[in-house]
């Protein structure tokens, strides 16, 4: 579905991604784990067109998307729920969700999707007319994911959905990710390696811009190096 081949990105003079190759197949959850500053977010930002790559290929459903601008990438079916939530803080929950469905033309289906998002995150329905900036961190994360789902992505890019959340909320968000995966392919970036590896099918380990390991998550969870570096065991 998504194929990234030998991608190189320079970011403010730093070689942020060095020959990175990643593949995501339809129906999978693939995770990329790595320390702070390893280049995980840069990778997602490059896929969604916010950052330009110097060389390499990014193709989605066999179409080259490397030179597309962000809104064209969304049109092609990839939606990025960015790090730090980035909800429109002065707009209501409802307006945020509507903006998420910006490219949708069919109103009926949009209402259907709104209902689906509210079913997934009942708390967003309770807070529908509230200003997004007044939501708690967990609710903002739900809004960020819900907003991304409103455009019915084929591939969802999730950047650090657990960041800054209490463990109970992390559990909740991940339960919802399990639910989302039934319809949507997911590329998940996480610092919380244990949670990500438990949820995903395959994982990549990114270290200072390079992929150093790629394996099914079951294997990564048992791998002594991964355990030592990322699972704190």
């Amino acid at each position: 579905m998504l194929k990234i081949d030998k991608l190189n990105v320079y970011y403010g003079g730093i070689h942020a991604l060095d020959d990175v190759s990643v593949e995501v197949n339809t129906g999978e959850i693939v995770t990329i784990i790595g320390a702070n500053g390893a280049g995980k977010s840069t990778l997602l930002r490059t896929i969604s067109g916010l950052v330009r790559a110097t060389s390499g290929k990014v193709s989605f459903e066999s179409r080259d998307i490397k030179r597309m601008s962000p809104h064209q990438v969304v049109e092609s079916g990839i939606v990025h729920a960015p790090e730090g939530r980035r909800v429109f803080s002065e707009l209501t929950v409802d307006q945020n969700l509507r903006l998420g469905a910006y490219l949708r033309k069919d109103r009926e289906q949009m209402d259907e999707d709104l209902a689906r998002v509210f079913q997934l995150f009942p708390r967003l329905e309770e807070r529908r007319w509230q200003i997004a900036g007044t939501l708690s961190g967990g609710e903002q994360q739900m809004l960020c994911i819900g907003r991304a789902l409103m455009s019915r992505p084929k591939l969802l890019l999730l950047d650090e959905p657990s960041m800054g959340l209490a463990p109970v909320l992390v559990q909740e968000i991940y339960r919802e990710i399990e639910e989302i995966r039934k319809h949507t392919t997911i590329l998940l970036v996480e610092q919380n390696a244990y949670q990500a590896l438990k949820t995903a099918d395959r994982g990549y380990v990114l270290e200072t811009g390079r992929i150093v390991m790629e394996a099914p998550c079951r294997e990564l969870l048992r791998n002594p190096e991964v355990k030592k570096a990322y699972l704190g065991k």
Partner: peptide, 8 residues
């Protein structure tokens, strides 16, 4: 950036 990610 977030607006661009909505497809705007």
């Amino acid at each position: 950036d977030a607006a661009a990610l909505m497809g705007i």
